[in-house]
């Protein structure tokens, strides 16, 4: 009887397998959905960080938009050029020359340079501080509470002495900091070279008023615009024509940097090899770590 039981068990499962396989096979044929195989291929080529830098919720949505032809292949700033090339190959299109977008902080004032600062004791975010008047004299410049620092997933922007400073070696250009800044002083700029010329001020007021609130703010003198036609004065601020900008015209630009009375036109970006070599001998200052021997408050309460 055991053999019969075993045989029946095997037969039952085999019979069910045959019947259900037949039904599922029929269903698979009837309910087939045509999915573009390129979507899966594009998705594999994307970094999968789901950062939203391209403007879509995640990598999958962007992949679908690329395959549908609604979006260019080079919008993924995290993947960069390699990713765009891979996507272009999948989609069978030629890749135009593309520069990575990197944030530029249009403010150059550290705590020591800002005038008219008040003792702000509210919530320590730029968003909250921006609602209050007279946190600092300049109503355009960086507040230094680090909303951008918290928005960055890649640890690439830090508030150094009250000024947001981008670490271009870590930055992938997702644009989260530019979205987080309530004063909109971070702009995403196409970096044609490793180092780019930038205007480090956003103050649109006339020179006298800028002088009253900041030691380094742009006074709108127009010296840069007189030397190079790359600059155009708009709202008391020089605007750099990045379309015409090319890394080759550096000599003329060095002159502009020197001429600027407030030293508000500077090169930002990754350090060059020469600069690294120049500063190689300098010792890094020792990082001070909290020591409980000196920081613990052991005073007694005597009431």
């Amino acid at each position: 009887m055991n053999w019969v039981t075993i045989g029946l068990s095997a037969g039952t499962l085999l019979g069910m397998a045959v019947i259900l396989t037949y039904i599922l096979g029929w269903a698979n044929k009837t309910f087939r959905v045509e999915v573009d195989p390129r979507i899966a291929a594009v998705l594999d080529s994307l970094p999968g960080a789901n950062c939203g830098g391209c403007g879509y919720i995640g990598c999958r949505e962007y992949a679908e938009a690329v395959v549908a032809g609604k979006e260019p292949v080079n919008k993924c700033s995290v993947g960069g050029k390699g990713c765009a090339a891979a996507l272009a190959e999948i989609m069978g299109i030629e890749l135009a020359e593309n520069y990575p977008y990197r944030p530029i902080v249009h403010c150059g004032a550290h705590y020591g340079d800002r005038l008219g600062r008040s003792d702000y004791r509210g919530e320590k975010t730029c968003l909250a501080a921006n609602l209050v008047t007279d946190v600092q004299g300049c109503i355009y410049g960086c507040l230094g509470f680090g909303d951008c620092e918290r928005a960055c997933k890649y640890d690439a922007i830090h508030v150094v002495d009250g000024l947001a400073t981008v670490d271009y070696e870590k930055c992938v250009g997702c644009g989260a900091c530019a979205k987080a800044c309530p004063r909109n002083i971070i702009s995403m700029t196409p970096f044609k070279a490793e180092q780019m010329l930038a205007v480090t001020c956003s103050n649109k007021d006339v020179g006298r008023e800028v002088m009253a609130v900041c030691k380094v703010g742009c006074i709108g003198c127009g010296a840069c615009a007189r030397i190079s036609n790359l600059f155009r004065l708009e709202d008391n601020l020089p605007a750099i024509d990045y379309e015409a900008y090319s890394p080759a015209c550096s000599l003329e630009l060095m002159k502009v940097c020197e001429k600027c009375p407030r030293k508000g036109i500077v090169f930002v970006g990754k350090p060059t090899e020469k600069e690294i070599a120049d500063t190689a001998h300098e010792q890094l200052p020792e990082v001070v770590k909290p020591d409980f021997k000196t920081t613990v408050d052991d005073t007694e309460w005597r009431g």
Partner: peptide, 29 residues
């Protein structure tokens, strides 16, 4: 002859197949 020892495996089998069926159906419609 008692084949109730097969109950779990047979039920899981049936459930898995019907889920597959439903998945295809939902995906299509």
């Amino acid at each position: 002859i008692d084949l109730t020892i097969l109950s779990y495996i047979v039920y899981i089998f049936a459930i898995a197949s019907s889920v597959q069926f439903v998945e295809m159906y939902v995906r299509k419609f």
